[in-house]
Design a binder for these strands. Structure first.
Length: 572
RNA sequence: GCGCCCUUAGCUCAGUUGGAUAGAGCAUCGGUUUUCUAAACCGAGGGUCGUAGGUUCGAAUCCUUCAGGGCGCGCCA
């Protein structure tokens, strides 16, 4: 039930039916014609630009056209009460109280699916994919929550979503990680002091992993080379457990974990390379040395190269290293080959800002693999600036001085973190302020929205109301202007879902919920100014339509917070 | 040098995929509680939407120029 689309259809249908009378020839499939809420200073429910768009298309004066359309609408759509022509030719419309109650009924009927468009597509969303070399830090957190909520959003909208984690358990960083664990084991067992090297991981958690490995029966203390296989297997397992634990605490789960190592060791990589070779997307040749700096390690060697410039990348990209082994990109290309073969309608990757430069080549790879059939969308989350006492915190996983998710959760609850991380567009940097997030006030949006729910539950407790599935609506309800504002806001919910889904922008949901909460708090407070607006009198609800309005708010609040996976406490 | 993102009120940011007089929060100033939760509400002031052009009935939104800030430009992952 999206009332805007519902009335848009009705209006367009009527206009088309009366095209001769209106002297309309061109329609252009009613493109660009909208029905929306007019600016608040106009006291109307709906507004359409139909005369402006069709007027231009047919070379007619929009105001004259408006006048004619107005008459047609008035005579044919019972739901419309008052219609006004405004500005350059907008039609502003008030809908009848009867129509409002009928629309409300539909919302209650849909209840926990109100807003869903029942899209029924399949998505694969890859997110987090933090290297299993240590716990998650606050920077990973944003992308993790973004990906999780985007998934929930698309699921709510009727799609099937696979939430996927690509485990980078292969390559030099892993070797260094394993070496770090080994050196810590030596330190514990043989008293050899751990010497920090810029390539190694000095963090405390490495010691914990080392201790755990030492405890296991199967560990045999030996040289690095001899113990490598066992340590790497165990260390990676333990490390992934740490990450999964962090994710769990944040309320995030994945459906599928794909190991880079397994991709490399399988035949997928060669299959992908061969197919791209066949289609002339790969050649054997030489690359220019990297621009800018004089790279002393540069060797000109012949290798396989992907033609990513065909897809708008700055340069073609190497698939093999100097020694003939595969590059990270080659592995990732194979991984995406696998994803494409799984036949999703849409692939989405959630990346950190430091991976922006990687987008063109991987999108190019997917285009080449799928022959342009599969679209990969990469959503970039900009940096999180961690502030504490006004001072920015620097995070570096390498140095072992990062703020881990675990540290963060000791001070801030999961709900606040989730809400805060989404309370910005992914395209802008996010200030994450330790002080602010602990505040219990309007400045902290999560409390404000939760408080709205707590107040509603408090009303229900006071009047001893048990939420029912069938909510009775009296057809003769006349809603006042405060109530109408709330109802109109609730009517807009499906539009929020639609645009959030189509643009992959979950941040619109917390903003919307905050605005809705503002309307509720304001409505509630009317009773402070005027006794007649009090919700409760002598332990009973003062007016039945209040039950309707707050139940409406509840429908959207619950649906919205379920998507965010943020709790709605009954008491605060 | 190149690519991506950002630039909207003093500060932090929204802005319904081109609509009408550009909106919130914080901060500032002034009000509201013998009361259903004041973790709240009401009011006031505050704007050349970075700059300069262009597209059109109409631009914060689309195109181009320039400026400022962030991130990235490996045969690392």
């Amino acid at each position: 039930m999206n009332i805007f689309e519902h009335y848009l259809k009705e209006i367009c249908g009527l206009v088309k039916k009366n095209k001769n009378e209106l002297k309309l020839i061109n329609f252009n499939d009613f493109k660009n014609i909208t029905v929306e809420t007019p600016p608040s200073n106009f006291n109307f429910d709906l507004s359409t630009n139909i005369s402006l768009v069709l007027g231009k298309l047919n070379n007619l004066n929009p105001k004259d056209l408006s006048l004619q359309i107005k008459n047609i609408l008035k005579n044919n759509i019972n739901d419309f009460n008052e219609i006004e022509i405004a500005g350059p030719g907008f039609l502003n419309i008030n809908i009848s109280d009867k129509a409002i109650t009928s629309n409300i009924k539909d919302i209650f009927k849909e209840n926990d699916s109100y807003g869903s468009l029942k899209a029924n597509k399949t998505f694969n969303i890859e997110f987090v994919s933090a290297n299993p070399t240590g716990p998650m830090h606050i920077g990973h957190c944003r992308g993790a929550i973004f990906g999780d909520v985007l998934s929930n959003l698309l699921i709510f909208n009727g799609n099937k979503v696979t939430k996927e984690y690509y485990v980078n358990d292969y390559g030099n960083q892993i070797k260094n990680f394993v070496k770090s664990v080994y050196l810590r084991i030596r330190e514990i067992k043989d008293g050899e002091k751990f010497i920090d090297d810029k390539d190694l991981y000095p963090g405390e958690y490495i010691i914990d992993i080392a201790k755990k490995i030492l405890k296991s029966k199967n560990y045999k203390h030996s040289s690095f080379e001899k113990s490598y296989d066992y340590i790497s297997k165990q260390a990676l397992k333990l490390s992934m457990e740490i990450i999964k634990e962090d994710l769990k605490k944040l309320g995030i789960t994945h459906d599928k974990f794909v190991s880079e190592k397994s991709i490399v060791q399988s035949k997928i990589l060669l299959k992908a390379i061969n197919e791209l070779k066949k289609n002339d997307f790969i050649f054997e040749g030489y690359l220019d040395p990297p621009k800018g700096d004089e790279n002393k390690n540069w060797k000109k060697t012949k290798k396989l190269i992907f033609k990513s410039t065909l897809f708008g990348d700055d340069a073609n990209r190497a698939l093999q290293k100097d020694d003939g082994s595969w590059t990270y990109f080659a592995n990732d290309l194979a991984y995406h080959y696998d994803k494409v073969s799984r036949n999703y309608n849409y692939l989405i990757n959630i990346l950190g800002a430091d991976h922006t430069g990687y987008i063109n080549r991987i999108k190019g790879a997917v285009s080449a693999i799928s022959k342009n059939k599969t679209n990969l969308e990469c959503k970039v989350c900009q940096l999180v600036k961690l502030l504490k006492k006004g001072q920015p915190y620097k995070m570096s996983k390498r140095a072992g001085e990062f703020i881990s998710v675990n540290d963060l959760l000791l001070e801030v609850d999961k709900d606040s973190i989730r809400f805060m991380m989404l309370n910005r567009s992914n395209d802008v940097e996010l200030d994450f302020d330790f002080e602010k997030i602990l505040e219990k006030s309007k400045e902290n949006p999560v409390y404000y929205v939760q408080y709205c729910h707590a107040r509603i539950q408090s009303i229900f407790r006071t009047i001893n109301y048990k939420p029912k599935k069938d909510i009775k609506i009296n057809k003769n309800f006349k809603f006042n202007k405060y109530e109408k504002e709330i109802i109109k806001k609730v009517f807009e919910w499906p539009k929020i879902i639609k645009i959030s889904c189509s643009k992959y922008e979950p941040h619109r949901i917390p903003f919307y919920l905050y605005e809705l909460s503002t309307l509720f708090h304001s409505y509630w407070s009317k009773g402070n100014e005027n006794e007649n607006f009090k919700f409760i009198k002598d332990g009973k609800i003062s007016d039945d339509k209040i039950i309707i309005v707050i139940n409406l708010i509840l429908v959207v609040l619950k649906n919205g917070m379920k998507i965010l996976n943020v709790s709605l406490p009954n008491k605060m």
